[in-house]
Computed example of a mutant assay.
Amino acid sequence: MERHRSQISEVINRNTVVSLALEQGFNAFLPVYDGGVDFILYRESDRELRKVQLKGRWTIDRKYVGRDIWIAFPLAGDWYLMPHDEMVATAGAATRTTSWIGNGLYSRPRLSAAMVKACAPYRFTSIARVADEAADQAAA
């Protein structure tokens, strides 16, 4: 049953991020094979393409370096979509940890004020606001 709970959480999180991206004009596509990309966001108006890896927290992973992957992660009740390589560049001391050096992986459930500031340009609009606006439009 625990496996199903985590799968359900992942689907809910994916749908939340996709809903937030739709509000910004993106469409979402699911790859047939997950080679490190959970879904693809594409906005036709400016041809913006984002290959997205969904995480439950701020996470960097060496296997994503140089692949133009964007990491979607929650932080303090909001969702962020940030380029992975920029996350690595702003990680600071995290790239000097045993976890990063030995395993090529580092994650944090909470971030320093400086890291939150670095992530700020990539914060989505509140999902509650997006849902309220969609409900208002549907009622009109």
Results as ranks from 00 to 15, higher is better:
residue 46 D to E: 07
residue 134 A to D: 02
residue 126 S to L: 12
residue 137 Q to M: 13
residue 3 R to M: 01
residue 50 R to A: 05
residue 32 V to N: 09
residue 136 D to P: 00
residue 8 I to H: 15
residue 118 A to Q: 12
residue 114 A to D: 04
residue 125 T to P: 01
residue 90 T to C: 12
residue 68 D to V: 06
residue 115 M to I: 05
residue 99 S to M: 11
residue 117 K to V: 02
residue 88 V to Y: 01
residue 86 E to G: 07
residue 139 A to P: 00
residue 29 F to A: 12
residue 75 L to V: 09
residue 100 W to E: 02
residue 114 A to I: 01
residue 6 S to Q: 15
residue 109 P to H: 08
residue 78 D to I: 03
residue 134 A to T: 05
residue 30 L to M: 14
residue 85 D to F: 05
residue 86 E to P: 01
residue 102 G to W: 07
residue 9 S to L: 09
residue 24 Q to L: 15
residue 98 T to M: 03
residue 88 V to N: 06
residue 62 R to T: 04
residue 13 N to K: 09
residue 40 I to P: 05
residue 136 D to K: 15
residue 120 A to I: 03
residue 93 A to V: 07
residue 116 V to R: 14
residue 139 A to Q: 07
residue 34 D to E: 05
residue 10 E to G: 15
residue 34 D to C: 01
residue 59 T to Y: 05
residue 31 P to L: 06
residue 114 A to V: 01
residue 9 S to Q: 08
residue 129 R to I: 14
residue 20 L to W: 08
residue 24 Q to C: 09
residue 78 D to R: 13
residue 41 L to V: 04
residue 132 D to I: 09
residue 51 K to N: 13
residue 19 S to H: 10
residue 68 D to A: 13
residue 46 D to S: 12
residue 40 I to A: 07
residue 88 V to D: 00
residue 127 I to F: 13
residue 2 E to V: 10
residue 31 P to K: 03
residue 69 I to Q: 02
residue 94 A to C: 04
residue 119 C to G: 11
residue 5 R to A: 13
residue 139 A to H: 06
residue 61 D to M: 06
residue 83 P to R: 11
residue 10 E to F: 15
residue 94 A to F: 09
residue 98 T to L: 08
residue 68 D to T: 04
residue 140 A to G: 15
residue 57 R to L: 12
residue 110 R to I: 09
residue 132 D to W: 08
residue 137 Q to Y: 12
residue 100 W to P: 04
residue 140 A to I: 10
residue 5 R to G: 07
residue 128 A to G: 04
residue 5 R to S: 12
residue 12 I to K: 14
residue 41 L to C: 00
residue 36 G to Y: 06
residue 60 I to L: 00
residue 107 S to R: 13
residue 87 M to T: 10
residue 26 F to C: 02
residue 78 D to V: 06
residue 116 V to A: 09
residue 83 P to A: 12
residue 60 I to F: 00
residue 135 A to T: 09
residue 94 A to V: 08
residue 93 A to W: 11
residue 91 A to D: 00
residue 71 I to N: 05
residue 74 P to N: 07
residue 123 R to W: 08
residue 57 R to W: 08
residue 73 F to V: 03
residue 86 E to L: 11
residue 123 R to L: 09
residue 54 L to A: 04
residue 112 S to V: 06
residue 88 V to A: 06
residue 51 K to P: 01
residue 54 L to R: 03
residue 54 L to Q: 07
residue 137 Q to D: 14
residue 122 Y to D: 06
residue 133 E to V: 09
residue 138 A to T: 06
residue 119 C to D: 09
residue 113 A to W: 07
